[in-house]
């Protein structure tokens, strides 16, 4: 009659895929670091500081992709009512704000020696900052907004604005005059530079997927706990 909880404690869920992704992330990161610091050539005009590029670009991509995922997951949740989509949306938003923060920081650190300023209000930077604030707004709405479907609906709207902002960020250098360099992948890059960048993009993507899986799993546990509390109360 009594269920053996001990048996479950001895054998927690396997999560092999997660372990594999973690290992892959670590190895890829080591490879990326080697390529960035030893294999990639020094750029002719920008010099050594250009190597920030190999971190700055992947971080940007993921920050943009992430908000689109948040928006899609939010809509899926509102459409199907399945809790797992909501958990995915929240987890992605949490990760996304880290990447959005990092691209601004890496951009500023690169801008200071090369441009001469930490920041300027050009369209690319401004839209990226808007994206950062959208992440903040989404997370605040989820934490402090009305409980239940109402709050989630508001949050979904915020995420949708972000999903519209993301392609605008990408096209900003094409549509408007900016201080930021134009999009140069893959066209404007020398071979070694391109390869190093692609490896770095792969690394950060794998790492992002892994961290997302972990955070999502944790979020599911949080939802499960909430449900259990309600049943016990």
């Amino acid at each position: 009659m009594t269920y053996s909880t001990q048996a479950l404690r001895d054998a927690p869920p396997r999560g092999l895929l997660r372990d594999a992704l973690l290992a892959a992330s670590a190895l890829l990161m080591a490879l990326t670091l080697y390529l960035v610091y030893f294999w990639a050539p020094t750029e002719q005009n920008l010099g050594v500081s250009q190597r920030i590029f190999y971190f700055h670009v992947p971080l940007g991509w993921i920050g943009m992709v992430s908000i689109v995922v948040v928006a899609a997951a939010s809509i899926l949740h509102l459409a199907t009512g399945r809790q797992k989509w909501d958990d995915l949306a929240y987890s992605t938003a949490e990760l996304g704000i880290v990447y959005a923060s990092l691209i601004i920081v890496t951009g500023a650190v690169w801008g200071k020696p090369v441009w001469g300023v930490w920041w300027t209000w050009d369209p690319k930077l401004t839209t990226t900052l808007v994206l950062w604030f959208i992440y903040v707004g989404y997370l605040m709405m989820r934490s402090y907004g009305p409980a239940g479907a109402q709050g989630k609906r508001f949050a979904a709207i915020i995420a949708l604005i972000g999903a519209i902002d993301a392609p605008i960020i990408y096209k900003a250098t094409d549509w408007w005059r900016t201080a930021h360099p134009e999009n140069n992948v893959p066209g404007g890059l020398d071979d070694r530079i391109l390869i190093t960048l692609l490896v770095s993009v792969l690394t950060f993507t794998v790492m992002y997927v892994y961290l997302l899986m972990e955070r999502y799993s944790l979020r599911r546990s949080e939802s499960d706990l909430d449900e259990l509390y309600r049943r016990v109360a």
Partner: peptide, 21 residues
Amino acid sequence: VSRRQREMQGEIEALRRALDD
């Protein structure tokens, strides 16, 4: 952290089954 979280998941499952019982 991943290991710790995995263990916790296991405990939550155990709790749920105990509650079901």
